[in-house]
Design a protein around this nucleic acid. Structure first.
Lengths: 358, 358
DNA sequence: ACCTAGGGTGAATGCGCTTACAAGAGCGCG
DNA sequence: CGCGCTCTTGTAAGCGCATTCACCCTAGGT
């Protein structure tokens, strides 16, 4: 692990100036072929790798895009197991971003925020990339606002707020949940629904709830002005707990449990099975997200599919556009979602081959 | 997107020298509290974010670890769908690395290699990180060898080669496949097995095959010295094709199809169902990897579980150790695997809750 | 043979920060 | 009252590369 060779070493070894070495890498065409060969040979012998830092400093750009996301997974042993089975939301976004970034010649820097040190997180990422995406509520909007004055920032999965100048990519939470709810009420004739949302302020989850309410209103179905339950964390464990609680309610078990995400719905599926209840015969369960997991559980889960890969792709596209100076006005993209009608509401999986058979 | 404020701006605004500004961020304790406040206030007003590049250049370290992996997914529409359902190998490793890196104060830079431009890939990553991991065969070993003279490099999922000085993290491919095969032969009394490997040179897949052979040898079961089939790509589609081919063999259908990975095995499951064959009654199928998918298909797949998250964690641990100068000799870690005996070999899922129930 | 264009190369500067090193300020002590 | 300290802050020298400008050399034109 000796100190790494630099342009100076390569220059000396190949008998040229450092400017020429630099040119060999940046603009090979401007260097005579013979000289170029000599330089490359020397570089190879020395094991020279250009310093990204120096490069970035001098050229004022890094060739790297970033992503900040919250750390969903708890370090608990139990959560570990859950992890194991689920492709997380963030995995998909990472994949989408990486793929698209690569296509544009960028690498991707990812960093999850631990609760507590958000400042250092963003600073660390922001200082090392040409632009970056942030999953909603990972970082205070004001902070992003400041940073976005110097580099492109796009917010994922959060609606555009009045005064922010960021680019946004979100999905049609309202429409998706409304359509799903409409399906339950009109196509399956369900009336007594219970919506399970989140206690923490999440604009996405709120939008879903509003979609749910709208569908209820239109169909004249019962629906309080608040979710039946608000959980603290939208995990499988909480979903299971809530399912139990709702089944034990004095005013009778709801006909359908409408969860704000798939994780909770899957947890509920487990809990209901433990109680000996059949889904969808005894109770209908739905989720939201369209995780791969949702298609693979039994019964397969009716849910709203978010194009998560595409969110990542769009985020990168927006960043690149802005880096190329193509746009000035902030945009707010709303990606369409689709309702996956599967077994857990009484439909049969009609959205692709069921696992183990095709 | 004006030009970003620098230490100079902050220094001027707060009436100190740039050294003091720097110290406020690097060693806050060495600056008088009052001065520190002034500097931080100025920084906040200006929206100052330290340049990672300059920082890295001056301090000769980046606080970033890297990962290079091959791009498994084809951009085809069909592959897209497959993607959708699978948590990829790389996702897990990314997650494991990110989590552990964060714990040590590092961020993670990821970059997949497209076929063709491997040189630029590694150079790009290597030049920007303090150390990095590479998935086996993403990059020629010799190239890594050179780079590892200047920064820590660990290879994932590839065995230590004679002359390389890299750190390695692999799993017990041989042991795992041997144990799985032994189980099929001794516990299920199967004799006519067919191993499906890969045409491309993959040390991991080769080790698995050797484990298979060893088990056959010990038990006195038939086994050629070559896999029954070698596929070009280890995908579901190929798995399905191979399953069909093996069933149509003149010398009769094998009792068990032993696949070198889960993806192929799952493809085979589909193909067999299409032919009306029952698994495991008519034919036994096994995989390797322990993807989440393997537990969720019906019948659930008997396979060998690799601790992929842990591989990522170990990779980071090794990198950090080396960065701290703790070690000099290269090490070669072999992580243990475990056989998941599930429905596709006639056992019942005894390794955790079946999906939809617990 | 002289002049002009370029192509190819080197010298020099600066990117924004870290980090010795030095210097000044305040302090207790003999 | 002067010396040696500790605590703070400033000065200055890079870190490794990109890039501008100037320069040299050769080829082509007249």
């Amino acid at each position: 692990m000796n100190t790494a060779p630099t342009v100076y070493d390569v220059a000396e070894r190949s008998g040229v100036s450092i400017a020429t070495v630099s040119r060999v890498y940046r603009n090979p065409d401007t260097v005579r072929a013979k000289t170029r060969e000599r330089v490359l040979a020397a570089a190879r012998e020395l094991g020279y790798v250009p310093s990204g830092n120096a490069r970035g400093l001098a050229s004022r750009s890094t060739g790297v895009l970033g992503l900040c996301f919250p750390d969903y997974s708890d370090p608990d042993a139990e959560a570990e197991a859950e992890d194991d089975a689920a492709t997380l939301y963030s995995d998909q976004i990472i994949r989408g971003m990486e793929r698209t970034a690569r296509r544009h010649g960028y690498a991707l820097l990812i960093a999850a925020s631990l609760k507590g040190g958000p400042e250092s997180l963003v600073a660390k990422v922001a200082g090392r990339v040409d632009g970056f995406a942030v999953l909603a509520r990972t970082v205070p909007t004001e902070e992003l606002e400041v940073i976005s004055r110097r580099q492109p920032v796009v917010m994922l999965a959060g609606p555009r707020e009045d005064l922010d100048h960021l680019d946004h990519v979100e999905v049609a939470n309202f429409d998706g949940q409304r359509e799903l709810t409409r399906h339950l009420i009109e196509d399956h004739g369900l009336r007594r629904l219970a919506y399970v949302g989140s206690a923490e302020e999440s604009p996405d989850v709120e939008a879903r709830f509003r979609g749910y309410l709208e569908a209820c209103r239109v169909a004249g179905a019962e629906a309080g002005d608040q979710p039946a339950v608000r959980v603290r964390m939208m995990t499988q464990a909480e979903g299971a707990r809530v399912a139990d609680a709702l089944c034990d309610r004095e005013d009778g078990r709801p006909e359908a449990l409408v969860f704000a995400n798939d994780q909770m719905a899957v947890g509920a599926l487990h809990a209901l099975e433990r109680r000996g209840l059949r889904v969808p015969r005894d109770v209908v369960v739905t989720g939201f997200d369209g995780l791969p997991l949702s298609r693979l559980v039994r019964p397969s889960l009716t849910t709203v599919r978010q194009p998560m890969l595409r969110m990542g792709e769009q985020a990168v596209t927006l960043l690149v556009e802005r880096l190329n100076g193509a746009r000035v006005e902030p945009v707010s993209l709303v990606l369409p979602v689709s309702v996956a009608r599967r077994a857990s509401c009484g439909c049969d999986g009609d959205d692709g081959p069921p696992p183990g058979g095709e």
